[in-house]
Amino acid sequence: MNRIQSLFEQKENKVLSFYCTAGYPRLQDTLPVLTALQAAGADMIEIGIPFSDPLADGPVIQESSAVALANGMNLQELFRQLKDVREQVSVPLILMGYLNPLLQYGVSRFCRDAAACGIDGLIIPDLPLEEYRREWQHAMEAYGLNMIFLVTPFTPQERLREIDECSSGFLYMVTTAGTTGGSIGPDEATKRYFSFIKEQRLNRPVMAGFGIRDKPGFDQACAYVNGAIVGSGLIRVLQQYPDKGEIVIRDFVHSFF
């Protein structure tokens, strides 16, 4: 059983996960940010691999990617930084990245190096199920990595079931039509979508993401699904990290409790 599965065995609700961009705000901040998030009480962390053309991201994460790339972040550097991450960080770690940099690195080499660092799962927002089966499934299973797929308000029920079957770890429920960095409303459509997902009684745990930026949003999501992922909200806070230090991370994480 990997760390993601144990997490959901121990904790079925209010699972709090954060997204941070590797190499942001400064190149060497990746590891200190991870340890600070864990120390503050994060249950799980997604590490974003910066890309020049992040199609599913809004301005805040786009900007953080551009800064990280300018800082010199790339996959070699990331795996160097994460080599001994498991000596300090025990929560599940997920790499989130767009397909093209991973393809250039090589599918099986990427899976091998991620697994060697103790990464538990992958999220690849522009990798559809069909291509996953063709080019990724074999390598990911061989290296014991979970594949976390996204489902959206526009995913038909039948496909939702199919994605649930193929996912391991958990399902990433995109809360609304949009890129990252929006915010979920308490509107009827959002509630209906959350209820629909809850009623499906899916095999995998469900984490809501996109638009969860504060405690009301987190609590709203947790009324229906296992937990939520906070991305742009944290990135905005990290802008103050070089000056103010870990306290900004701790205060932000605690604001969700």
């Binding site: 199609l55 599913a56 397909l99 927002p125 522009d126 990798l127 559809p128 069909e130 291509e131 797929f149 996204l150 489902v151 959206t152 308000p153 526009f154 995913t155 038909p156 496909r159 994605i163 995109v174 039509a177």
Partner: peptide
């Protein structure tokens, strides 16, 4: 039928656009 010309093509898109 999968949308490829030889090795090239396909539909590498975020899930939200798949229905469209």
């Amino acid at each position: 039928e999968n949308g490829y010309y030889g090795h090239y093509g396909g539909a590498y898109i975020p899930e939200i656009l798949r229905t469209n």
